[in-house]
Amino acid sequence: MSGPSRMMPSGVTGRGMMLLVLAALGLVIAPFVADRYLVSVLTTVLWFAYVGQAWNVMMGFSGLLSLGHALYVGLGAYVSAALFVHFGIGPWAGMVLAMLVAVVAGCVIGFLGFRFGVKGVHFALLTIAFAEVARIGFDHITWVGGSGGFFLPVEAGASDPLNLRGSPVLFYYVALALVVGALFLSRALLHSRLGYQWLAVREEPDAAEASGVDLFRARMTAVAVSSALTALGGVFQAFYFNNLFPEQVFSMGRSIEIILPAIVGGIGTLVGPILGAFILTPLGEALTFLIEAGGLDLPGLKQLFYGAALVVIVVFRPEGVWPWLARRLGLVRQPGEGA
């Protein structure tokens, strides 16, 4: 009786736990067996898994559709990069301010949306608007390079983990740590009082409010948590790629790329965004590889592929791949089943 419902939405079975542990082990040893290219692909996978999880806190847990998450990535990236380049403040300290700036931006959007009853699609438009304003605005902030780009100093062969300078393998493990951390944080949040209130707000705001939930507060905390986590992904991006262009970092396309893993894997689930990233990114990479190997030059085909993948998922597995896979393979206990 105490089992399944305690583990919301349903408990992981022994088999599910085993698979999770195996997957984690595989990821830990991957850099020892994989080549440089594979490590870079896996790092990208993990990055999307991480920001997908961050986005999931808003949409999946609280029912708030953000189509402008590139804003938080960009703010996190630019703030940490600027602190490093201009003041020599390393990313571990810089990330605090990076997250804070993103949270402030998120709270401004949230305040406007929730105080004035901007809901659903209109709220999503508001998030797009802010990301677009940032994209255009940063084009003109010459202090961080403007539209010409902002570059972090790169020293070949440098190994300075304290400043997040080092080999691709260092970044791989940092990304892995982010994903695992976000997974545990998401799980803890879902099992907390706040998590229950988020789900209630997502399902039926009126009934949640009548049950004593402060809608404004619940939604604002969801935005704050999501934007802070996403900003951390931005810090990672700045120090991994060492260059930032407003056109890329804040782009609408980036915002959409962030939400695809969660949609494909399963919105509102803990594993969904991670699984979605492991499905989408490698397929996209493989496609690029095949096209190049075939000597073709077809820019935009990857985007076309993502679009097609989205259509397939929305039509055949609207709740995402993970809930279906978990059911089929018996990885989780379904509500209503005995413990």
Binding site: P4, S5, M8, P9, H191, S192, R193, Y196, Q197, L199, A200, E203, E204, D206, A207, A208, S211, G212, V213, G268, P335
Partner: peptide, 24 residues
Amino acid sequence: VKPFGQLTVEDNVVVGALARERSV
């Protein structure tokens, strides 16, 4: 009626109880 559809029946009521309780 406005149930929290995707939550279990018990979790629906847990949300109500959390109006007075801090601990889940």
